[in-house]
Design a protein around this nucleic acid. Structure first.
Lengths: 187, 187
DNA sequence: TCTTTTTCTTGCCTTAGATCAAGAAAAATA
DNA sequence: TATTTTTCTTGATCTAAGGCAAGAAAAAGA
């Protein structure tokens, strides 16, 4: 059904790289499993086939603040540690049971060096990633809580089904009480 | 004194590319000049040698909301239009008189295609750009107004001297009154 | 320099959203 | 199924920050 080659279709990949990708099997990861914790180094990236991953940081009061969601068919990784080869700023954790491809960062980068087509693809991915983050941030900056929620739910209706209110609320920069009240208003 | 080659030093550039860069002279741009407006396409990027540029969007009430600053020796560009070759989401305007190198996007990309060293450099730039944006966004998400200001002023003391309060306030997601009060408290 | 315009401060009042707490509902687990 | 745990809703306050307005200060222009 799914395969990594399918995900990278359209790219001119060397036989080696195709080989590497074809070795991957979908693996399942249980709910609430940590993929990476802040302070750790990246060893993998994941392609989410089923389920939902979220990223979060801890506030000064020790509360989890959700900073992003990764749903199918997206790539999931911790940006800082992955690209700067440093330690992670954010935590990644499964919100539901997952089905993913887990790809070794080290091996990926080895092929990446040699493969212009992969580099091109990576550039596009990064541009889009940044633009998405940017528009999320802008919305938090510009709109009030209600509008933020409405905008967000429109493009991410399914995430509501996986993630508890508190998680979504912190992603939108509000408390769960406030989000609950907003939802009531919108009925 | 300054030259574009200096900026790109350490990169293995073909004679052609070096030539292209060496043709550039620092140019001056007066205060409050628009470099790009939302809806337009990108034609240039700039390397800021002196002065300050800011990016902003309009709120639903038509107010300018500052979304970023570009100070020396940084590259200044409108991300969406530059990399997606689409129309600009943000506006760029000089906060003070500027001294910049203005580089043609079209010509830059032509060389970019052919120059792995430039691509490598671009990747690093983009990673850092994203990480900076991310940490700005995180701070807006996590900290209260006062902490946001304190953190920011620490790493950007000089920007205060160029940009009016209102501009900085909107960047921090607060009003100028509030920022004024915060400053008083911190004396 | 004098005048006009913009920026900054500050007081007073309002408001969006936070906090706390308790019960209802739903989900997980035995 | 029964029990425990987590999530969601809702009411009653509380507070950080906003809105408005007016005067002070500073900057830009004449």
């Amino acid at each position: 059904m799914h395969s990594l080659q399918y995900y990278y279709q359209g790219l001119e990949l060397s036989p080696e790289v195709q080989d590497f990708f074809s070795q991957h099997q979908e693996i399942r990861i249980t709910k609430n499993t940590s993929l990476i914790r802040q302070g750790e180094g990246s060893r993998y990236y994941w392609i989410v086939i089923e389920g939902l991953v979220r990223s979060f940081v801890y506030s000064s009061e020790g509360e989890e603040i959700t900073t992003g969601f990764f749903d199918p068919p997206n790539i999931c990784l911790e940006f800082s540690s992955f690209f700067l080869h440093s330690s992670a700023v954010e935590n990644l954790v499964s919100v539901s049971e997952l089905s993913v491809f887990q790809v070794s960062k080290a091996i990926f980068f080895k092929y990446f060096e040699q493969c212009p087509s992969l580099q091109q693809w990576g550039r596009t991915w990064m541009v889009n990633f940044l633009i998405n983050r940017q528009s999320y941030f802008l919305s938090n900056h510009t709109d009030d809580a209600k509008n933020r929620y409405q905008k967000w739910i429109e493009s991410n209706p399914h995430i509501m089904k996986y993630a508890p209110l508190k998680t979504i609320a912190s992603y939108l920069g509000i408390t769960d009480s406030t989000l609950s009240r907003i939802r009531r208003e919108l009925l």
